[in-house]
C-alpha cells in the first residue's frame, strides 16, 4: 500500500500573516510549539480538529493549508 502523504504550507502562511512565529501559531491553535514544528516538517499529521483550528487561524480553508498527495482512488 503506497504511503499517504499530507503536505502543508503552514510555514509560508505564517510569513504571509505578519511573520507569525511558531509559538504564536501554537498559542492560537492550543498546542505546543514542538507540535507545530513537527507538522511543518511533515513528521506529524494533525487531527481533524487541529487542522481546522490551524486553518481558521490563517482565515483559510483546510484544503488550502493541507494537501493530500496520496494515490487518486477514482
Amino acid at each position: 500500500m503506497p504511503k499517504i502523504e499530507i503536505t502543508n504550507n503552514i510555514r509560508r502562511l505564517r510569513f504571509d500573516n505578519g511573520e507569525m512565529t511558531q509559538q504564536q501559531l501554537a498559542d492560537a491553535a492550543g498546542v505546543t510549539r514542538q507540535t507545530i514544528i513537527a507538522i511543518e516538517a511533515g513528521k506529524y499529521s494533525p487531527s481533524l480538529t487541529l487542522a481546522f483550528k490551524i486553518a481558521r487561524t490563517f482565515g483559510q480553508k483546510v484544503e488550502e493549508v493541507f494537501q493530500y498527495q496520496g494515490r487518486n482512488l477514482q
Partner: peptide
C-alpha cells in the same frame, strides 16, 4: 515556553 502553552496536546 509561553503563558498560553498547554500542559500537553494531542501529539503528547
Amino acid at each position: 515556553q509561553s503563558p498560553a502553552e498547554p500542559d500537553f496536546d494531542e501529539r503528547d
